[in-house]
């Protein structure tokens, strides 16, 4: 499944970057993620609960950040396993300055699923992914507003 999108955030690139690197902020803005534990600078353990179609699962997974060029880009590798199936995703994230102290966040990647998760309901996953993306950016904006106020 392809994962891509972009959104312009009302904050400078450095602020956005720092927020993306802060697990406490990420837990707040990422839908479905209930815990994000930093293992080291580039590795996290993530616990998420997601419902897709008929499939509801609690996933424990690993998030690795690599190819980091602060504050421009990084690649996020997510691998999660659960009894209902496994997910492996590779997402490139780019931050571009767009003037007025704003930042365009672009992401482009691919997710592969297996098991029951792939078989049942996977065709609604892209819809779910779109709505999760929207929630993510909405929350991101709220956090930025909170910081600004």
């Amino acid at each position: 499944m392809q994962l891509n999108g972009e959104h312009v955030l009302k904050a400078p690139r450095k602020v956005v970057w720092d927020m993306l690197m802060d697990p406490d902020q990420l837990v707040k803005i990422t839908p479905g993620i209930s815990e994000l534990n930093k293992i080291d600078k580039t590795n996290y353990e993530a616990i998420s609960e997601i419902k897709i179609g008929p499939v509801k699962g609690r996933f424990t997974g690993a998030v690795e950040l690599k190819d980091m060029i602060e504050p421009e880009q990084f690649t996020m590798v997510v691998s999660q396993n659960s009894k209902i199936g496994n997910v492996k995703a590779n997402v490139d994230i780019h931050l571009d300055k767009v003037g007025n102290g704003q930042t365009r966040l672009t992401f482009d990647g691919k997710a592969q699923m297996s098991g029951l998760l792939a078989r049942t309901g996977s065709r609604v996953v892209s819809g779910v992914a779109n709505s999760l993306t929207k929630q993510f950016f909405d929350s991101f904006e709220k956090e930025i507003e909170l910081m600004n106020s």
């Binding site: 179609g53 008929p54 592969q112 699923m113 297996s114 792939a118 078989r119 049942t120 309901g121 996977s122 065709r123």
Partner: peptide, 14 residues
């Protein structure tokens, strides 16, 4: 079957 060989419509929902 997707390119990784996953059967992606293996239920009556799909």
């Amino acid at each position: 079957y997707d390119e990784s060989g996953q059967l992606i419509n293996g239920s009556y929902m799909d």
